[in-house]
Design a protein around this nucleic acid. Structure first.
Lengths: 338, 338
DNA sequence: TTGAAAGCGTTACCAC
DNA sequence: GTGGTAACGCTTTCAA
């Protein structure tokens, strides 16, 4: 390596060693454990490193150490605001802890998810599986290969961090009940979605307690157009409030209702879930259940790192609270006799 | 390595070699260039590999090869739908080409961006810089260290892929003009935003050609609430159509208009830009200028890979077209005498 | 405190 | 076709 040419593939520890008149070992120590080297020597080395634009090669270090300083992150769909926020939080947290993040988007494809997990397994220290859609068996296999943490899916034996929407949804049903609604439509999400099932349960249970009638629709792909589709069915069923699996579907509902001239919240109330950007910017703004997505991501990283430090640790499940955020899209139920 | 224990840190090529009664070299060849090894031998090796759950260690391979099979991707903010779509496209394209993606979110912080780029430089084959905010000097430095492609920023000497919004905005103005609008409000974005200036120019120019009056507002932080704020001003100025810097601001406009009982598009037409998820899911759906974000991401990867294959290639700038997408939020101008 | 040398798992070159 | 060997850049004993 030519000193005057600090470009691609640039200086190695050996170059720096030569430049500082020390051995490569010492250079390594200067970066790994600076206090094991005499201050004067360290200065010399650091100067040479600076001059040569030296940065330790993480690849080589990984090979020597057996650790990569990298976390794998697998999400179903980054373009989904829900996951985007989690990704961002994970990214930020990991970086604070000096970890890089390998990102993989499965496009909601369970098979790809499994393959990706297996591939990533070998090149990361830990794997963060966000809302994994793969079967429990496969998940188990992945977990056996690499330290993993599941986000937003609870599986026995797998450390996970979830945000049960029970609290928020219970609040939502209570809110609607208080407004006089006695019949609500429940719009389910994807077929294999753990969170959809869980949300369904929560609504059903809360409604039963309050003697509110529930008509269910779905499971459906949690998309805008399926929301729109369900709006008509919900209306036909006579529901005065619609609780959607997520904000996106709620927006679909809103859109279709507007097309039909049905007023929100005067004629029908609509509730979303997740409190994504979509909910705040909708017209009317969506009443929704807020999931602390950033906290989800952060806790997942923390759990992972904790686990890496202490591999003997038993699997742990972290649960965060959700809460109802009331906005314009919900209002008093229309009077029957009106 | 115990044969019966194919778990973490599992079998190496040497283990497989032992199991198959061949040398490590042969094992390597079986995966790198299978046709250079006799079918029978290959079968033996593959069987042993299967049995041991062997997968080549990418880290070690990277070190030996000097290539990582990884692309670095740096974005200002993943939670921004605009960037999220690009990330997704890059991810998908890279994976098709057997590249993994290292993701870094800078949180719009130019200094972090620079540091991250330098760090990533050593562990990826190429760097994709999306809308980089760092200074030209630093950008140059990064580019000298690692093959890079800039997305949505055009810099001399740096290969890049950009999508000027001129076309789409010209179409937007023509569209409004054809509908009878003769006075439009132009809502600018951030003060130092290259794209805001560029978009402003495009609208002004097109409007001048068609003798459409333009009243400008801003520059403003490109947020929802600033859009809402401007709506009243635009109305007061007598504009019948509002062209916003991006979809988010357009939604702000929509929201405020709804609050005031102003109908869209009957009383006022609204146009956004970027065609993010927000535009499609708005009520009414937003007429907007589509930037082909996925194509932007894909082309960036292609450009990168092309460059890696042929390092002698001169920097190239790929420009993609933007186009107007007409949706419900625009309609005929209200008649003056009505 | 510092240096020499072995090793991490793979690939590539050169013999056989 | 296949095996031996060096090399990738770093960390880490073990001696000095």
């Amino acid at each position: 390596m030519n000193e005057a040419d600090p470009r691609r593939g640039s200086a190695s520890a050996e170059d720096v060693a030569a430049g500082a008149g020390v051995s490569p070992s010492t250079v390594s120590r200067c970066f790994a454990s600076p206090d094991q080297v005499r201050p004067e020597t360290r200065r010399k080395v650091l100067a040479a490193a600076e001059r040569l634009g030296y940065r330790p090669n993480r690849i080589a270090r990984s090979l020597a150490l057996g650790r990569t300083g990298t976390l794998g992150l697998i999400v179903p769909d980054i373009a989904n605001p829900f996951f985007a926020v989690i990704v961002k939080a994970v990214q930020a947290r990991a970086r604070r802890k000096d970890y890089a993040v390998f990102l993989a988007d499965t496009d909601e494809h369970p098979d790809d998810e499994y393959e990706l997990a297996l591939t990533l397994a070998r090149q990361v220290d830990g794997l963060l599986l966000v809302a994994p859609r793969m079967t429990g068996d496969r998940l188990g296999e992945v977990v056996r290969q690499v330290p993993s943490v599941a986000v937003n899916r609870s599986v026995a034996g797998v450390p996970s961090v979830v945000a049960p929407s029970e609290d928020g949804l219970r609040q939502a049903v209570a809110h609607l009940h208080a407004l006089g609604h006695r019949h609500l439509a429940l719009v389910l999400g994807a077929r294999n979605s753990w969170s959809s099932e869980q949300r369904g349960h929560a609504v059903r249970f809360a409604a039963e307690q309050l003697r509110v009638k529930v008509t269910e629709f779905g499971p459906h792909e949690p998309k805008f157009h399926t929301g729109a589709q369900v709006a008509d069915l919900a209306l036909a069923a006579g529901a005065t409030a619609i609780v959607a699996h997520n904000d996106l579907m709620a927006l679909g509902v809103l859109s279709r209702l507007a097309d039909r001239g049905v007023r929100v919240p005067d004629d029908v109330s609509v509730v979303g879930a997740d409190d994504t950007l979509l909910a705040t910017t909708a017209t009317p703004a969506l009443t929704t259940v807020r999931i602390p997505l950033d906290a989800l991501g952060e806790r997942a990283v923390d759990l992972m790192l904790h686990r890496l430090d202490d591999p003997g640790h038993p699997p742990q499940e972290v649960a965060l609270d959700s809460e109802l955020i009331v906005r314009r899209s919900t209002g008093p139920a229309p009077r029957k006799d009106a």
